[in-house]
């Protein structure tokens, strides 16, 4: 689940866990209605970004604490903790105190506490937000690996679209408590269902330009300021009925802007002149911030060719 802060991700996760009352609607886990079922009987485990480990306990005891409280047999506790440590690659740290562990290892212990419960569903709320940027990237790969090993449902809430795109197999985009779209990462990127999803998913962000649809002969043009671009037939067809002479918002992903000779020759009526404001060199990519009649646009240099993709609201 991805969306800006305050969009309802945490509340939804807490509702699934049974920590928050569901005021309306029904919640099913494995075809079983669980609205009235107590949190501890739902067979879920939840992990938060505020992982607090017990400072005077070893990693082993930190993972075992919840199980001890459930009065699970010692042998079984040992078995589950060793299994979890193996999955997390934490065997060497089992008898260390948390204060000597790095923040990503501490986070693994927190995940370990959930794994030993052997729940049906793992709920994770902004799990990596407290980590440094490079550890976050490392840990999201780790979580992906753990997910594949455990073969259980993970529901992961984040405000970071890159995290959602990298880790998710099915992503729910939320805003103001309302689901905007549910899709695969690729589906969200290539076919966003509204302007919010289009703008939220993808970094650098999609450019939005308000334009007017005009028909000249059999061709459809988009006019903005002193500029006009001709739409390719497939895109034009979608606007022919009902949108002519109306305002639309044109959405262009930065990587779909091209300056290659071959491309310009192919679509001479879709060429714009722009002035580069700023160039940001990021290593593999360079971001160019450009102006077309005072409209700011962003362009990302890419080596591959794609036809412009347009998005209309």
């Amino acid at each position: 689940m991805v969306g800006p802060s305050g969009c309802g991700k945490s509340t939804t996760l807490r509702m699934i866990a049974g920590l928050e009352e569901i005021t309306q609607g029904e919640l099913y886990i494995d075809d079983k209605l669980v609205n009235e079922i107590e949190a501890r009987d739902r067979d879920v485990a939840i992990v938060f970004q505020n992982y607090a480990l017990y400072p005077e306990m070893t990693v082993f005891d930190n993972m075992a604490f919840g199980l001890k409280m459930q009065k699970i047999y010692k042998d079984e506790i040992e078995k589950r903790v060793y299994e979890a440590a193996k999955i997390l690659d934490m065997n060497d740290f089992l008898y260390k105190k948390p204060n000597i562990l790095s923040s990503d290892k501490q986070q693994k212990v927190a995940i370990g506490r959930a794994i030993v419960r052997q729940p049906k569903i793992f709920l994770m709320d902004e799990l990596l937000s407290n980590l440094d940027a490079h550890l976050r990237v490392q840990m999201r790969t780790e979580i992906g690996r753990i997910h594949r090993m455990l073969q259980k449902t993970f529901i992961y809430g984040t405000h970071d679209q890159a995290e959602a795109m990298a880790m998710g197999t099915r992503v729910v985009v939320m805003r103001d408590g309302i689901i905007q779209q549910i899709d695969t990462p690729q589906g969200l990127y290539e076919k966003p269902r509204n302007m919010f999803v289009a703008g939220f998913i993808g970094s650098p962000q999609m450019n939005f330009i308000t334009a007017k649809v005009k028909k000249k002969g059999n061709e459809i043009y988009l006019i903005f300021g002193e500029n006009a671009i001709k739409l390719p037939p497939a895109k034009a067809k979608r606007l022919e009925d009902g949108y002519v002479d109306k305002e639309v918002v044109l959405g262009i992903r930065p990587e779909n802007l091209h300056n290659e000779e071959a491309f310009l020759a192919l679509m001479p009526e879709s060429v714009l002149e722009a002035k580069i404001d700023i160039a940001e060199m990021l290593g593999a990519d360079t971001f160019l911030y450009m102006r077309i009649n005072d409209i700011k646009k962003k362009k990302e240099m890419y080596k591959h060719y794609t036809f412009p993709s347009f998005f209309f609201v």
């Binding site: 920590l19 949190a39 501890r40 879920v44 485990a45 939840i46 938060f48 607090a52 409280m69 959930a114």
Partner: peptide, 9 residues
Amino acid sequence: DTLATELLV
């Protein structure tokens, strides 16, 4: 958060 994680309360 810890009580929610450990005890689901």
